[in-house]
């Protein structure tokens, strides 16, 4: 009898990579764009400067991996939050499809917007 192959190691790898990347990069980004600049604590750079930096090919690649891997990280973690937190173990497949499908769709939309 052959053991059923699990996809968990694959999704766990995406979860780990996304967790590390988001932990490193998101706090500074969210603080600057979402709080410090709107509240006037720092003066945000001009449109042309932001455009020059964020639209650099390397920045786009970093942004794509940050977004995509973070979405898979969020999907994997939220999937188990629904299983363990809300005790929805009987909806196992539906939740997995919605979570990972959402992350995949988000990645495709991100790629489309970035390029």
């Amino acid at each position: 009898m052959s053991a059923k192959k699990s996809n968990d190691p694959f999704f766990w790898t995406l979860f780990g990579a996304g967790g590390a990347l988001s932990a490193m990069l998101i706090p500074a980004f969210l603080f600057l764009f979402g709080i410090a600049t709107p509240l006037g604590w720092v003066e945000g750079p001009a449109y042309e400067s932001v455009k020059m930096v964020l639209l650099h090919p390397l920045a786009r690649i970093v942004a794509f991996f940050l977004v995509s891997l973070s979405l898979f990280h969020g999907a994997h973690r939220f999937r188990f939050t629904l299983y363990d937190g809300l005790q929805l173990k009987h909806l196992f497949q539906l939740i997995a499809v919605i979570c990972y499908g959402g992350a995949l769709a988000g990645s495709i939309v991100t790629g489309y917007i970035l390029w």
């Binding site: 449109y47 964020l54 940050l66 979405l71 937190g85 917007i113």
Partner: peptide
Amino acid sequence: ELTSLAVAYSVILLVVIYRAL
């Protein structure tokens, strides 16, 4: 575990910024 929602929100905000740019 629910911090996953904040992580997802943050990167969606980044994509929205890119789209506006």
